[in-house]
């Protein structure tokens, strides 16, 4: 019994030491900068998440947590520009290369993030956002009056509650989901990724959703005011949203492959284009 107790003690000590070592490896650093209106913040993180949150006030707060001594974080301010970059001290990958960023910025700041593995999140912003990630999942919500540019290779992209946005999304195989996204110009391009739009398309914007072979699903309320056209060249289209047929559509309408029409005053132009995917438009 006594030996077992000693064994247990030894085990506990070993576990404790490992925990301390792990804790020591997790190095949290905080950087604070004061910026003027219209500041720009750039974060480049080869591995690990980047969270951007807009806030009141004029401070940029960058909290970076490294998980090994093989990487470090370089932050610097040059007038109204802030740069935060993960810097490799040794060649590494996997968990050792990961750095977690939490970044608080004035909501009017322009933010650029490059985080290949992500995920990348941005919320409560009014400044422009440029977000890039290879396989990174990208989530943007509660953004207004901003340009939102997102590019991924395979990472899924989700935008929610974007008002008066200039939105440009490009992905190869990432699925794209837009909920309550409206603005003067919204464009989505994917190859195999599916595109889902749920919302009313605002009042007077240009919307273009294009892919190669994924599905395009649009759900909109009866109150939506749209001038909508859909065409899948070799795929199919389905529509159960009431549209008034146009006298002069931009292309020849082919049953099952294309349709076009307007609802209400047709305030927003909505173009849905696929080469071989399925396009479905539904009434909410």
């Amino acid at each position: 019994m006594g030996r077992m107790s000693n064994g247990v003690k030894c085990s506990l000590v070993a576990v404790g030491l490992l925990a301390v070592a792990a804790f020591a490896a997790d190095n949290r650093k905080e950087f604070r900068y004061t910026v003027a209106p219209g500041a720009s913040v750039t974060v480049t993180n080869e591995s690990g998440p980047v969270e951007i949150k807009g806030s009141a006030g004029r401070q940029v707060v960058i909290i970076a947590t490294t998980h090994s001594d093989k990487v470090e974080v370089d932050c610097d301010q040059n007038r109204n520009r802030i740069h935060a970059t993960t810097h490799f001290l040794q060649r590494t990958d996997g968990p050792d290369s990961r750095v977690d960023y939490q970044v608080l910025v004035p909501s009017d700041a322009s933010v650029t993030v490059r985080a290949p593995s992500g995920p990348i999140t941005a919320e409560k912003m009014r400044g422009d956002l440029t977000l890039e990630g290879d396989a990174a999942q990208v989530d943007v919500h509660d953004v207004s009056n901003a340009h939102v540019h997102v590019r991924t290779i395979s990472g899924p992209i989700s935008l929610g509650n974007i008002a008066n946005g200039h939105v440009e999304i490009t992905s190869l195989n990432g699925d794209v989901r837009l909920d309550a996204v409206s603005g003067p110009r919204v464009s989505v391009n994917t190859v195999k990724g599916s595109i889902r739009y749920n919302g009313d398309f605002g009042e007077g914007g240009e919307y273009l959703l294009v892919n190669h072979s994924g599905n395009i699903d649009v759900t909109l309320p009866a109150s939506a005011s749209v001038d909508l056209s859909a065409r899948s060249i070799t795929g199919s289209v389905e529509n159960d949203f009431p549209l008034q047929q146009k006298q002069h559509p931009a292309f020849a309408i082919t049953q099952g492959r294309s349709f076009a029409g307007t609802s209400n005053s047709g305030a927003s132009s909505v173009q849905l284009r696929s080469l071989s995917g399925k396009i479905r438009v539904k009434k909410r």
Binding site: P116, D134, A135, L172, N173, H212, S213, T234, L275
Partner: peptide, 20 residues
Amino acid sequence: ALLATYRENLESVNAYIRDA
């Protein structure tokens, strides 16, 4: 680690080009 992702996506986009 990303080679497979890039290869897969390259095939996808080349298929898009071929189809078009």
